[in-house]
Amino acid sequence: MFLINCPYCGERDQSEFSSGGEAHIVRPKQPTELSDDQWAEYLFMRKNIKGVQFERWNHTHGCRKWFNVVRDTSNDIIHAVYKMGEKPPVK
């Protein structure tokens, strides 16, 4: 069980948070303009990276804020945490 440094509350146990999956998959502004393929790409297709992944987490049992986490999925080490809308750190 890892620790996540919530940018609003500080370091807390992972069990207080829930994962929102891969980050920076922006919901298309004009979904109706997309082909079925493109829509499926947004909806379902994921890189599911083994290694450093940018992902969304929510402090469900805390401030309920969403934010981003850079985590290595091969060892659960967290490299960075940043707020929604902030620029992601360079790898």
């Binding site: 829930s18 929510n58 469900t60 309920r64 969403w66």
Partner: peptide, 13 residues
């Protein structure tokens, strides 16, 4: 509620 918060905070801030 979680779903609405998600959209609100991340897609439509």
């Amino acid at each position: 509620l979680s779903k609405l918060e998600d959209y609100l905070q991340t897609e439509w801030p």
